[in-house]
Design a protein around this nucleic acid. Structure first.
Lengths: 206, 206
DNA sequence: ATTATATGTTAACATTGTTAACTTTAAATA
DNA sequence: TATTTAAAGTTAACAATGTTAACATATAAT
C-alpha cells in the first residue's frame, strides 16, 4: 500500500496520494485548510507537480468530493443488515447517515457544499450525479416498503426526498452547531424519525 | 436614503453602506464575490478605508450575516397573519421560510454557512445567538398549538427543532440543486409539511 | 484659532493559485 | 543496445487577495 518508491524524482502515484492527503486535510482542518503549498509539502513534491495530474486545484477537489460521496455511500449501506425489517432498515440507514455527518463534519460539508458545485452542473441528468446512487438505493428500499404495505403507496421519489431532507437538515444543524442539545442527539433523531414515519407510513388500525 | 455627501474626502456613513453593498454582492454573486477591492471601488473609497470601521473583512461579514438573519426573521414573521388557525400559521411560516431560501439562496447559504461560524462560537448561550429569536418565536407558536390541543404535548423545543430541521434540509437541497423537481416544489413542501404534522399532531379520532 | 480625533489614502507585503520555460526519468522504437 | 519521445517534476515569476504602517485631511473640541 505504501507507494513511495525509493527513487527520488518520480513519485509513483502522486495523483492518488494527492486525493488521499486532501481527504485527510479536509477532515482535520476543513476545506479551507487545503492549500497547494501544504499538501505538496506533505507529499514531498514541488507545488506545481499537481498540475501534471489535475488541470487545477478545482479539479482535484472535485475528485475529493467524489471520493467523499463514495465514503458516505459505503458507510451508510455496507453495514446495513439486509435481513432487517424494512422499517428498521430505514431507521438504521437514517441513523448511519447522521453518524457519518457527525463523524466527518468537514467532509460532509464539503461534498454537499455549494462552492464547488457550480462548475459541475453540466451533468444535470440525475442518473449521472455522484450523490444519486445512494439516493436511488433509498428509493428502492422505500418502494419495497410500499409493496410490503409498510409505507403508503405514494410517490417513492418524493417520500425519499422528504426523508433525505430531514436527514440533511438535521445533519447540518448538528454539525454547524445550531442545535445545542448534544447530550440528546439520540432522542432528537428518534423523534425526527418517528415523525417522518408517522407521515408516510400506512395508518395503523389500533 | 441616499447617503453620499457632496464633499469628497469623508464619505458620511461608510460603515452602513459597506454592509448594504455587501448584502447586494452576496445575493448577486455569492459570498466569494465579496472582495475588498470590488466593494470599495463601488463605494468610491480606497480599499483600506474599511479598516476604520471594521477590524477585518471577517468582522464586516459577521455584521452582514447578522443583517441577513434579521432579513430572514422579518420575511418569515412580518407577513404572518396572527389571526390564523395555529396549524395554518405553522404551514405559512414554513412556506415563507422555504420561499426566503429560494429567493435569496446566496444569502441563506451565507448566514447558515460554517466558514464564518468558528470565530463567533464564544457566545454559545443560545439566547444570545443571532438565529435564536426566530427559533424562539417558533417554539412559542408550537407551545400555543400544544395548549390548543392541536399538537401533542411533547417537548416544544424538540418539536421546533424537528420542524426547523425539515425546513433547513429542504431549503438546502433545493438551493444547492440536489433536488431536480423544480416544477413540483409546492407538492414537495406540502408532503413534507403534512409528514411533519402527522408526526407531531394529536391523533385525530376519525 | 489651535489642537485632537476620526476618517481616508498611498505604498508595500505575505499568502494564495497559476503559468511558462526548463529538467529528469521512464517508455518506445530503430 | 542506442536513440528518441513522452510523462512527470522543478524553478522562477505573476496576478489577485487581505492586511499593515506611515502619512494626509476633514471634523470636533477646547
Amino acid at each position: 500500500m505504501n507507494t513511495k518508491p525509493n527513487s527520488s524524482y518520480h513519485h509513483g502515484n502522486l495523483k492518488e496520494e494527492l486525493i488521499i492527503e486532501s481527504l485527510k486535510m479536509v477532515e482535520s482542518g476543513g476545506i479551507a485548510s487545503i492549500t497547494l503549498r501544504e499538501i505538496t509539502n506533505r507529499l514531498g513534491t514541488s507545488r506545481t507537480a499537481l498540475y501534471r495530474h489535475f488541470t487545477s486545484k478545482e479539479e482535484l477537489l472535485q475528485e475529493v468530493i467524489q471520493a467523499g460521496f463514495e465514503k458516505l455511500d459505503t458507510h451508510i449501506f455496507s453495514t446495513l443488515d439486509s435481513d432487517l425489517d424494512l422499517n428498521l432498515k430505514l431507521h438504521d440507514l437514517g441513523r448511519a447517515y447522521i453518524d457519518f455527518a457527525m463523524k466527518n463534519p468537514n467532509l460532509y460539508r464539503m461534498i454537499f457544499g455549494h462552492e464547488l458545485k457550480e462548475q459541475r452542473e453540466e451533468s444535470c441528468d440525475i442518473n449521472e450525479r455522484e450523490d444519486a446512487p445512494g439516493f436511488h438505493k433509498l428509493v428502492d428500499i422505500i418502494t419495497d416498503a410500499q409493496n410490503a404495505n409498510i409505507l403508503k403507496k405514494d410517490d417513492a421519489f418524493m417520500q425519499a426526498t422528504v426523508m433525505w431532507s430531514m436527514l440533511h437538515g438535521l445533519s447540518n444543524l448538528l454539525i454547524d452547531g445550531h442545535v445545542h442539545i448534544v447530550d440528546n442527539i439520540d432522542a432528537l433523531f428518534e423523534l425526527s424519525f418517528q415523525t417522518l414515519i408517522s407521515g408516510i407510513a400506512v395508518e395503523l388500525s389500533e
